[in-house]
Design a protein around this nucleic acid. Structure first.
Ligand code: ZN
Ligand code: ZN
Ligand code: ZN
Ligand code: ZN
Lengths: 171, 171
DNA sequence: GTAAGGTCGCTACACTATAACAAAATCGCC
DNA sequence: GGCGATTTTGTTATAGTGTAGCGACCTTAC
């Protein structure tokens, strides 16, 4: 297990548990968690890292389902609305929220080398943004924070974004 | 003049001054500020708010220039690289930097009602992100902060994103 | 059962961005 | 000024991302 298992309930790391939790949640709230919505959520969970809308579409088709892009986007809108999925604007991809039951402002650490993304929820960043916005008399509805860079693993391997993320040669 | 003229040197508010500053800068550095690049930068400046790549293309054509999308994107890459332009990932648009001479991490306040965008450079937000990333042993290359919400002007008019940004009726 | 509302399928389309290669302009050097 | 190397731009084609509009179907409420 990595030193950087950053969350105690990392649903994304346990697709089955996450699906069951979602089942329970929608059962409780009465919101309809249809087979299609469940299937798309499962695909996102099992991807293990951010996945594009058209990749989701492809995997739907792998399972015999004939679908058009719009179907995927509609489900994505639903899952985002329900806070089970986050959208990453920088890389046009979608990933499962690690703590969907807990409303939160999230920040994302996006590795430009390996494509991994870590969701964090740092109250200090959150507060700083709230304060900054307040100063400008700006009413925040959604604070998007996507931090591009190199993840701990890739740093350890000496990779850099400049060199196309190949390990650095110091010659 | 608005109460929210947020910057002392808001180049975007003075296209001519900004262009002259750019001329001087590129003269000094020896980097080539070609007519096309200058023209695109001028279009972005005169737009007064974020503008899409294809809108830039259209305005180029208005001035008799025949151009393909790729030309615009190449120039945009250049201007971003030179830090004279920022890209807004959330809305796929580009805007002039308010303080291009001063390297900075920027944050953007994007109004979902009127489409206006304000660039701020809040050291507290910046520091909070740096600290948060450090905790995760993540090496930051570019911290993207795009805060969606309602600007001061629109708040004053009672607009909300929920109602499609029409003024709120309380009936 | 029937009407209403929500979900999904289907076709087509709009918008955003890039690849590959050729032509032209610029620069450095002699 | 000629000339090769480099950079910039043009040209054509294509990839990638996201929506509109409408009708069928399915679920829910009465
Ligand atoms: Zn989350
Ligand atoms: Zn990495
Ligand atoms: Zn700036
Ligand atoms: Zn506004």
């Amino acid at each position: 297990m990595s030193v950087f298992a950053h969350h105690t309930h990392d649903f994304a790391a346990n697709p089955d548990a996450a699906l069951q939790a979602a089942d329970a949640h929608f059962q409780k709230t009465g919101v309809r968690f249809t087979p299609l919505r469940r299937r798309v959520f499962e695909i996102i969970l099992r991807a293990g890292k951010p996945i594009g809308a058209y990749d989701i579409l492809e995997r739907l088709r792998d399972h015999g389902k004939i679908a058009a892009p719009i179907s995927v986007y509609r489900v994505l809108d639903f899952l985002i609305e329900q806070r089970f999925v986050h959208r990453l604007a920088t890389i046009n991809a979608y990933m499962a929220c690690v703590t969907p039951e807990d409303p939160h402002a999230a920040q994302f650490l996006i590795c430009q080398c390996c494509g991994s993304v870590t969701e964090i929820s740092d109250p200090i960043i959150d507060k700083a943004i709230a304060e900054g916005a307040k100063t400008a008399h700006f009413q925040v509805s959604y604070p998007l924070v996507e931090i591009m860079g190199v993840c701990a693993d890739c740093v350890r391997e000496g990779k850099t974004p400049a060199s196309g993320c190949a390990p650095d040669h110091d010659d």
